[in-house]
Amino acid sequence: MSETLDLVEETSFDTLCSWLKMKAKRDEDIPLDLNLIENKLVDSIVFVEFMMMLEELAGIQLEVNEDLLKKVYSLQAIKENFFQ
């Protein structure tokens, strides 16, 4: 049971990673620990879309504020906070 669940969640997280890679026009995979905001992978507009994608894939609703930024600054942080 838990194994299948992990599998489903892993897939959604991968989808999010490839979506971001496409949006940021990157040829290589985005390192999990890269700070997405400081390194300007997302600007305010892409950030909105990114959060919408995260909501859809993780099945959650998010309020965007300074606290949220601490949870979504890297793919690793997103994985820990929303896909585990």
């Binding site: 905001i37 997302v42 600007d43 305010s44 950030f47 909105v48 959060m51 919408m52 609703q61 998010l62 309020e63 965007v64 504020n65 930024l69």
Partner: peptide, 10 residues
């Protein structure tokens, strides 16, 4: 209420 998604990053 649908929460806002707006934030100023820069």
């Amino acid at each position: 209420v649908y929460p806002s998604k707006k934030i100023q990053l820069e």
